[in-house]
Structure formats: C-alpha cells, structure tokens
Design a protein around this nucleic acid. Structure first.
Length: 834
RNA sequence: GCCCGGGUGGUGGAAUGGUAGACACGGAGGCCUCAAAAGCCUCUGCUCGAAAGGGCAUGCGGGUUCGAGUCCCGCCCCGGGUACCA
C-alpha cells in the first residue's frame, strides 16, 4: 500500500520510465538552469528552504520541491534568469546520534544521505544550478561560517555569558529558548528540559529587535507568519520605575517594568522573581531562612509545575519582610517573592496593582493585600475582577481625570522629573544562544588563554575543523572536549598555553546565510562578494514549511542585517526574503509526515510506477498549496487519475486520440469556422485561467483548467476541427503544462515541434478570443433562479429584460403580480422583484 | 485565556456579491471485447414526484442587499500558534 508499485498499463507509448531519466540527463547536460551574474535577462531568485539531508525524499519534500521547480521553470519561460540553487543543511544531531549508536562517522552517514536526497530531487525532475551546491559541513563552508562568527565577535554581536540555559537530558545539549516547547519539553526529543547555569555564546539579535519588527510590514509574507514573528519579538511600551527599599537608602532600588505606569497609584505591593540576583541583601535577617527555603523549593520544581496555574489556585509567594517606597505617593508597600514573576523577562521584578491586573488581583486575594482602583470602571463591571480597560483616572493624585494614555505620559514625565524612572520599551525577544555541546556542528573558532582571555582564531587559520579520530560515546560530553589534540593549542596572541573552545554552533547559524553563499559560491576571499550578492538578492520567492515561521526566518533576517552592517553584504540589503510561501504539511495518520515520526511514504515507488510527472501533478492538483493534506486510502487513486490525465495528453499530442472509437479523422479535418472559433476561445481562456492560477499560487485551479481544456479538445475532435486550430490548442496545452509536468511536456514538444519547450516563451492570451459570442442569461424572480436562456453576448439591458420577461417559466412564477423592480446585468442576469 | 486559520456532496476541492458543487477521486450504467484490462461515452448534492416540475441545501442564529458560500453581528465545532512577558 502507498508505494505506487501497482502495475500501470502504459497507454500506447506514454512511458515515464523511459522519458523521465532521459530528460533529467538532458537538462543537466544542457545547463539551461545554470545562470551567471552577467546574464542579460531580468534576474530572479527562487529558493526552497535548506533541506536537512535525512535520506531519500518523502512526500513533504516532493510537494515542496515541486512548488519550487514549477516556479523556476515558469519564471524561466517568462524570460527571467532564474537562480535556482540547492544545498544541504548537513550538520545536526541525527548524524551524531547515529554515530553513537552505530559507530559510523557522522560525515560518512551524512554524505550518504545527501546522495540519496539529491538523487530523489533530481528524479523528481527538479532543476538546479548544481555548480552552486553547498553543504554546511564542507570545510569551505565551515571556514566562512567561522569567519562570520569572528566578525560578529569583533563587532560585539557575539558574546559569552553565564546564563541559565535550557538543558535537554535526551539530546545532551543546550537548547535555544525557541527549541523548548510551551510544556517545557524539548522540541526534538520530547524530554523534559531542565535549567542549568553555563558559560555560553550568544548572538545579540536583540540589537535588531526594532528593525526586525518594523520591517515585517514591507514583506510579502503570509500575514500569520508576520504575526507570529511580531508576537515573538513582543515589543511592549511602558516605563521602568525605581522602588527604593524602605529604610535602606544604602541599597540600589528595585526597578520594575510596567506597561501601565498610569496605575502607579494603585500599587499595594511589589514582587521579585525567586531568582532575583540581589534578593538576599534586601531581605532582612529575620526572614532570610524562610525566603531561602521558598526559593529553593520553587527552583527545584520543574518548569511544568511552575507554569501550571491550574494546579495551585493561588499564586505561590512569600513576604520578604522588606518594604519599598512608591515614588508617586511616598507610600511604603510590602515586597514579596513569588513564582509568577519571570526572572527572564524585564527586570525580574514587578509592581503589584490588584485593581487593574488580574494576576496581581489573584495574588492579592490569597495574601490579603488591599486593592486600590485607579481607573473608573464601566457600570456593572464585576467588582471581583481586575479592570484593564479605558476610563478616567481616579485615586491617582495629579493624574486624576486623565485618560489612560494621557496618564501614562503624565506618569512617565513625573518619573523622569523625579529621576525615579524612565520610559522604556521592553522586548520579549532574547539573545540567540548559539553554543551546542556537540561534535557534528561548526566549531566555534575561539581559543581561551589564561593571559589573553578570549582570542578568536586568526582568519588565516580558518577553518577550525573537528578531528576525525574521536570516540562517540553516550556520555553527553562532546567528543571534542575529550580530544586533547584538539583542545590543547598555543594561544595565537601570546603563544602561551591555550585551550580551544569545544562547543559548536547551533545549526541555525548555517542556515542563516546559505542563501547568500548561493549567490557567489566560489568566492574564496570572502563568504560572498557583496556586489554579486546584490545582483541576485533578495530571494524573490522563498518556499518552505510553516514550522520555520519563527526560528529560521528570524535568524536569517538577523544575519542579513548584521552582515550588511558589518560590510560583508551590501548596505541596503536589509531583508533576505521578499516573498515567502509556506506550504501546507502532509499528514499521515493524524501527524506530520517526517522521518523522525517514522510515517513516511517514499516517492520511489511512484517514480517507478506512474512516474514523477504524475506525482508532481497530484501534489499540485490535490488542493491549495498552503493547505494541509491528509494522505489517505484514496490518495493512490487520485494519483492514478493524474496519470490518466497525462496519458490523455500523450494521446492527444501524438495523434492517437483521433483514431479512437467514435472519432474519425475525417470529421476532425472537415471543420467549420464556428467550430474552430470555439476551440480557439477555449485555448485562450485556458491560457488566461492557467496563468492566473500560477500567479496566485492556485495551482490546483491551473491543473483543473488544463483538464477541462483537454476534455474540450477531445470533444471537438469528435465534432470536427481544423488541423491548425487543433495544433495550436495542443501546443498551448503542452506549454501551459511544462512547469508542472516537465518530462512529458518536453518529450511531446520535441516530437511535435523540435526544440526545448522550457526555453519557449510563455503563451499570451489573445483578448480577441476571450470574448464569448453567446452567454447564458439567468433569469431570477425574487432572487431565485427560474430560467436560463441562451442569448447573444452583446444584448442590451432592454433586450435582456424583454427576453427574460417573455420566458414562459418566468411568467408562471410572476403569477400575475406586478413587477416592483427589475435588476438587469446583461448578458448574464435579470432579476424581477415582485 | 489570547492571536491566527478553517467548517461547501460519499472524498479532495471550485466559485471578482450574480447559474453553488468547476476539476478530479469513488460509485452506477453503456460502448468496445469471446472475455477482461485499458480506452471512450453518459449519469451521479439531498429530497418529493411516474414524469413535467418543485422544495431543501455551503457549521448554527440573526442582519445588510433585488440577490450572500462570499459582507456585518452573535454563537458552536475543528486545526495551528502562544501562554503568568507585567
């Protein structure tokens, strides 16, 4: 089941097994998809997301690369020089885990899988400029990844910090925040992620938070992807307020962040996170033991327990015994520690406003803290709830009577004047943790020296390559750390004893600049020549899965901006991907089809059975490209249907259809002008419909248009048509089909016309043939369909009404009632209102 | 909870506010054949009716409109994202 291996009876000569490999070879030899920067045609860049080489392609790949290839071929036929590169995101955990399991070196494992995947893509008929292929684990690529790291380090955009990190016991490595799911588990292994403090490398993506947010507006991306990025960046406008500790003028204040400085008069307490750094100098002696206990207890809980608000009704916290002064009214309010405050967001401390914040309200309820309302509430508002809507300020001193937004500004002005606070924009986005304690990744090119500190490996010594003679053991320690030959090196600066960094980079680093390398893959004095990159960038059409909506796309945008600022890319290159399309995923048995889930359907059987063209066509036809698709028992039958359609095209284009029963070639030749005109109209309407589908990513409707068109050609064959009109129709059909089903189109075109179809110009609809001579006039009474009448397409409004009102059916439905109103839209519709 | 998507025949899905269900899968029948396969042709939303012809239908309830799958309001259900972000 589901392998396409059933025997298909090849209809008279359509033999995909024979033509597909031949054309794949010819495309490669002809090199028509190899492009260079000096190409005179308008340039465009079509790219599918950098694939992880997981072995032979699965249906998700097939769908993705079919969309990509269709775009490449379509744009080429429209006269563009299309850059269509391919490469492999070849570093990553699966290869290393396999090495631990089997002892096979990750490079050997990975190279074998690259061969398989490349083979699958070529067998699909996808065309690339293969000269440009990159692989993340190539020494050349490693060299330039490390070069970029070094440049980021010099610019202060890479830094080392001790930080609480997400440690996955299953993967035995640190994860980025983005790789931890909301339930506290690892997105890859599903293990519960724990917190650890480690020295790690970070990239300062937060420097670009504003730009990353603002420039989303100009991108032609799916709105939901932009929304996800906006939420991820999480820009919050508000203020920081300094709360001095009552009676301890010797201590620095606790600074809280709030988006509602206008509610400051409603503060009845303050809270810090259990991890708050200066907590113990603030807590008075009398409370220390209790607070310490509480903090220990909280931190021993897993993130899951901590986050489950359902389990514990109240907020879990403890009074510190200290008090802080509210600068607005001079009041002293108690300071708590509570686990509902996140150490990792803002300042790790917040002010408690039970009247206007539901979380504070809940906490105040449990701990018996008072509530002060500072916003006038609408009548009938539930007094048990916090109110965060608009209204006049009350109980707020000098802010009374102002609106919320006026009061925010007033409060900020007050804080600035008193020097006890400031306007502040806070982001949810945090810096990108790039260290990974793994072997199979790009080594971080740094040496630690007791005297000189952190010393980057000099550029002329790059790449730093991981040694091959390592042991892969399931200890969780990187094999690099155990390899003395790798670790022990002299300091490049002072020559003293140095120790090499053994962490490697997150593989998202590799995929953050590969699209730039593709523009200039042979550059050996820079990652790429900015001038050459400028000719191809930005990517005109980027295609990939929605799963990369946040991580990959955000990191790639950050890299593009950073490289631009570093002078490695053109200064005006701020965004890498002009237009993005996110394809739907293919599910089998309810979950996404993927190697890690083990629910793959290999395309190989279909390649060997119905052929790649039929499988491509199926993926295009099955539904809107952005929608998910459930692979089911019926899917093979639909694929058969696509094969049947191609076989019908084959018979049409090879003249076999005319000799079929019911069709005499005599009839086909003795055509009237009227019959020819009908076919011509159909031909040009199909050009329009199909092209329209291509342009708005509605390939399913393009396929449907071509199916209808071939049905029409079959029909006119039976009734009579001239050879000229027939040839035009069939040639057009092949041209329109060429980006979708490239092999059969190429083969038939060569047989009929000679030459290479994919070098032909895209057909243009002649508007003379888009006008129909007749139309169907729909007649309604009170909006209900009552009759349909064939009319001349050029009839006037009065004629249409006259024809409509003379319809017997209409008359019977009017039932003698007077017509109150008549709506006429000639020649398509007349509606009588009675 | 919040933010996005989406609910149309037995199935996948079409429909610039103007014939709902294009196209295809599945199903039924016919032609061809000794027979089958393949191919070709016809029918196929539900329902009442012998037929002619009606009625009902795009998750539910309202509304706007001559006319709503499409626009507006209020719900329900499904999928995804996010989740104490102050």
């Amino acid at each position: 089941m589901f392998d396409g291996s059933r025997i298909f009876r090849m209809s008279e000569g359509y033999n995909p097994q024979e033509i597909e490999p031949r054309w794949q070879k010819r495309w490669d030899e002809m090199g028509i998809y190899q492009v260079d920067a000096d190409d005179p045609r308008p340039k465009s860049y079509v790219l599918c997301m950098y694939p992880y080489p997981s072995g032979a392609a699965h249906q998700g790949h097939v769908r993705n690369y079919t969309f990509g290839d269709l775009n490449v071929r379509y744009r080429t036929m429209r006269g563009e020089a299309v850059l269509s590169p391919i490469g492999f995101d070849s570093f990553g955990l699966p290869a290393e885990n396999a090495a631990i399991r089997t002892g096979i070196h990750p490079r050997i494992f990975t190279d074998a899988r690259i061969v398989e995947l490349r083979e699958s893509l070529l067998r699909l008929g996808a065309v690339y400029d293969l000269r440009r292929e990159t692989r993340s684990h190539d020494p050349e690529y490693i060299k330039w990844s490390q070069f970029i790291f070094t440049k980021l380090l010099e610019a202060g955009l890479a830094y080392r910090a001790n930080a609480p990190v997400n440690w996955c016991p299953g993967c035995q490595t640190v994860l980025a925040n983005e790789q931890v799911l909301s339930d506290g588990t690892c997105e890859r292994s599903g293990d519960l992620v724990i917190r650890r403090n480690l020295e790690q490398w970070f990239f300062k993506i937060t420097d670009y938070a504003d730009e990353l947010l603002d420039e989303l507006d100009g991108l032609d991306w799916p709105e939901r992807v932009k929304t996800m990025q906006r939420n991820w960046i999480g820009r919050s406008v508000g203020a920081e307020i300094d709360l001095y500790i009552d009676g301890r003028s010797d201590l620095a204040p606790i600074t809280v962040f709030t988006t509602r400085p206008d509610t400051a008069f409603g503060v009845t307490y303050a809270v810090v996170a259990p991890e708050y750094p200066r907590l113990f100098e603030i807590v008075p002696e009398s409370h220390r033991a209790d607070v310490l206990n509480f903090c220990d207890e909280v931190q021993s809980r897993s993130d899951i327990e901590r986050q489950s608000t359902e389990m514990s009704k109240g907020k879990r916290g403890i009074a510190t015994g200290a008090h802080v002064i509210n600068p607005f009214n001079g009041e002293s309010v108690p300071l708590y520690v509570a686990d509902y405050v996140l150490a990792t967001y803002g300042t790790g401390a917040v002010m408690g406003v039970p009247g206007e914040d539901q979380r504070d309200h809940d906490f105040a309820d449990v701990y018996g803290l008072p509530t002060v309302h500072t916003t006038e509430r609408p009548a009938g508002y539930d007094p048990r709830l916090a109110y965060d809507g608009p209204g006049r300020k009350i109980n707020s001193g000098f802010l009374d009577g102002l609106s919320v937004s006026e009061a925010k500004q007033g409060a900020i002005d007050f804080l600035s004047e008193k020097r006890s606070g400031r306007a502040k924009v806070q982001f949810r986005l945090r810096d990108w943790l790039v260290s990974r304690q793994r072997y199979w990744g790009c080594p971080i090119p740094v040496i630690y020296c007791d005297g000189c500190g952190i010393v980057p490996v000099p550029l002329d010594q790059l790449p730093v390559l991981a040694p091959d003679d390592v042991e892969f053991l399931p200890t969780g320690e990187s094999p690099l750390a155990r390899n003395r030959g790798f670790v022990e090196v002299p300091c490049p600066r002072c020559g003293g004893t140095g120790r090499r960094e053994t962490d490697t980079m997150d593989t998202f680093v590799d995929s953050s600049w590969y699209f730039l390398r593709f523009t200039d893959p042979f550059s050996d004095d820079a990652p790429f020549d900015p001038a050459v990159a400028a000719q191809w960038m930005p990517v005109d059409q980027y295609i990939g899965g929605i799963e990369h909506a946040i991580l990959h796309l955000m990191y790639a945008r950050f890299f593009t901006k950073a490289l631009s600022d570093l002078g490695l890319a053109p200064s005006d290159m701020r965004e890498p991907f002009k237009r993005l399309f996110t394809q739907g995923m293919i599910r089998l048995g309810g979950s996404k089809m993927s190697k890690s889930k083990g629910n793959l359907i290999a395309p190989a059987g279909y390649f060997n059975g119905v052929g790649a063209d039929s499988l491509r066509l199926f993926h295009l036809f099955v539904g809107p490209p952005g929608d998910d698709f459930d692979w089911s028992d019926q899917t093979d039958e639909m694929i058969d249907g696509c094969h049947r359609f191609l076989a019908r095209v084959w018979r049409l284009a090879t003249g076999q259809a005319e000799s079929f029963p019911g069709v005499s070639s005599e009839a086909s030749r003795s055509a009237t002008e009227e019959q020819d005109l009908e076919l011509l109209r159909s031909t040009h309407r199909t050009i329009e419909r199909t092209t329209n589908g291509y342009d708005r990513w509605a390939y399913n409707t393009s396929v449907a248009a071509l199916m209808e068109f071939s049905n029409t050609i079959y029909r006119v064959l039976a009734t009579g048509v001239s050879q000229r009109a027939l040839d035009e129709a069939i040639d057009t059909l092949l041209l329109l089909l060429a980006p979708m089903a490239p092999h059969i189109s190429a083969e038939l075109w060569e047989r009929r016309r000679g030459g290479v179809i994919h070098l032909e110009p895209w057909p243009v609809a002649n508007s003379d043939f888009l006008i129909d001579a007749t139309a169907v006039l729909v007649v309604q009474v009170n909006g209900k369909l009552r009759d349909r009448i064939d009319v001349d397409a050029s009839i006037s409004e009065d004629e249409a009404i006259a024809i409509a009102s003379s319809s017997e059916k209409v008359v019977s439905f009017l039932d003698g009632r007077p017509i109150r109103k008549t709506i006429a839209r000639p020649p398509k519709l007349v509606n009588f209102v009675v």
